[in-house]
Structure formats: C-alpha cells, structure tokens
Design a protein around this nucleic acid. Structure first.
Lengths: 144, 144
DNA sequence: CGGTATCCACTTAGATACTG
DNA sequence: CAGTATCTAAGTGGATACCG
C-alpha cells in the first residue's frame, strides 16, 4: 500500500482510476501493519460476506430469513456461519427478541457501516465494468 | 445497491461513512444487473486476488517469482491459478519474453488499475479500523 | 524460470434431520 | 423462526516431480 504506484499508464487510465478513489493514502504503511491488514482483508474477502454487507447496507435491518431471501443461493448453514463471524468482527449487530417463535434482527454496526461505504466504489466499478470483464473472458476463451 | 440505506445511525456515524465514499451511486441498480454484479464480485472476493491486486498496484510490474515473494504464504499453484483467472478477467496483463530461462512479467491492465483504485478505500478502512476489529473479536470471545 | 501434472490431506459447503 | 448437529460430496490447496 504505497502512496503511489509505478506509472506506465496513460494519463487517461490514471484519471479514470482516480474517479474510484475517495482519498489518497495517508502515508506509506508500516510493513507490520501491512501483514495484519492483508490477513484481515483476506478474512472479509469471501463470497458471502461482501454480499451480506451490501444487503444490510441497502435494507438497514433484516431478520434472519429476510437476509436469506435477499441473498439468493446461500444455505442456512453458511448464512448462520457468516453472520456469526461478522458479529464477532464487530461488523453486524444481532438483536434477539425473547419471544416465541424467536425473532432475530441483524443490522450493520457503525464499523460495518463504514466498511460498506468503503466497498461502494467496488460496487460502482462492478456495475460500470462487468461488460468489460465479460468481453475479456470471451476473448481469452476464444484464443485458448 | 440502493442510493440510500435505512438511517438508524447517528449523524456522526454517517459522516464517518461518507469519508470512505468517493461517489454516490448513479441510481438504483437494475435487479438483473445486481445479480450479475454480485456474481462477479463473488468471483473477485477471494483471499489471494485482492492481495495480488494490491501488490501489482504498489509495485507496477513484477515477475512471477517476485509476486510470490511479495505475497507471503501463497503456493506456486494458487499463484498460477489466480494470475490466470485475473488475466482471463482482463485485470492483469501477462507478458512472455521468449528467452531461456523464461521470463514472464505481470502488470495491471487499465481495467485492473481502476479496480485497484476502487479497493483503495477498503485498504484505508482496514488500516484505520483493524484495531477496532481486534477489539470486537476479543470482546466477543470473552463473552462466549 | 515459470510453469504443468499428479496425488493426497484437509477443508468446505450443501442436504437433511432435529430443537428451543 | 432461527438456529444446531451430523453426514457426505465436492472443492481447495500443499507437496512433489517433471518439462520447455
């Protein structure tokens, strides 16, 4: 995570890259921190976490079964597991109502809210560039 | 990916979240696109891709073995596999020099460059909040 | 050097059944 | 409703050996 990267790119590429950035890096990052941070990013960077983060960002507060409906394809097991990890990491708040049948509500914590915000640009990138990725894949597969 | 989320947060939380955002969403996103995008994000959201993206963003152009050195813990197999996928997705450019011994250089494509830029805020978030995550984990584990 | 191929241990995730 | 428990199939990733 250096402040600047090697610049063998066109001015236009770099300008376009800038539109995805909110802030410059504060400074070069301590290599020790770098390791910790990579480890942490790796733990968040899984299939479901990002999608759940996005869902709660959009919808605010949801019950267990509502999240399941929004995140198509997830199994109950993975949903439980992922939510539990996110709660442990302080990203999600779990509110249990003592009633029968049980009712549990999930929402983003302030920490989860800021992480979601940080992911915004990635989502925007995906919306704007998914066709380019598809095209690249098609080209690659044709040549192979 | 709606433009706004449910707001049961303090003004301060929301202000803090804003600092991680570069741009507002262009509009509510077509649900069909939403699915495609989630699928794509899921495919990028793995342990190694993000770290390699960051490494190439920092260093510019690297040889295979140099990336291996920068990304500690990765096996040769996973590095090959991940780089191949990233090349297929159009994020990375692979340049092969016809010489003995072989020399291969990897760098970000313009598409990869913009994605890296979009990830900047996530890295910044991680640098600024990894202690909060550690604290949350400690609290959670103590209570359990 | 930068891979590919094969084998194998381990992990992961889905399906199913059951519970407070 | 919101889980937990168990079993099993599939996938992942490391180690090793070999190749252009």
């Amino acid at each position: 995570m250096k402040k600047s990267h090697a610049s063998s790119y066109s001015a236009d590429d770099l300008r376009r890259a800038q539109t995805y950035k909110a802030r410059d890096y504060p400074q070069d990052v301590d290599p020790n921190i770098e390791g910790l941070v990579r480890e942490m990013i790796s733990s968040f960077a899984d299939k479901w976490t990002v999608v759940i983060l996005d869902t709660l960002w959009d919808e605010g507060t949801l019950r267990f079964s509502e999240i399941a409906r929004h995140v198509s394809g997830i199994s109950q097991k993975m949903l439980t597991q992922t939510l539990r990890r996110m709660e442990r990491d302080g990203l999600v708040v779990r509110k249990l109502y003592a009633c029968v049948p049980p009712k549990v509500e999930y929402s983003l914590s302030p920490l989860g809210l800021t992480l979601s915000a940080a992911f915004c640009n990635v989502w925007i990138w995906a919306v704007e560039n998914h066709k380019a990725v598809d095209a690249a894949r098609a080209t690659f597969d044709r040549e192979a």
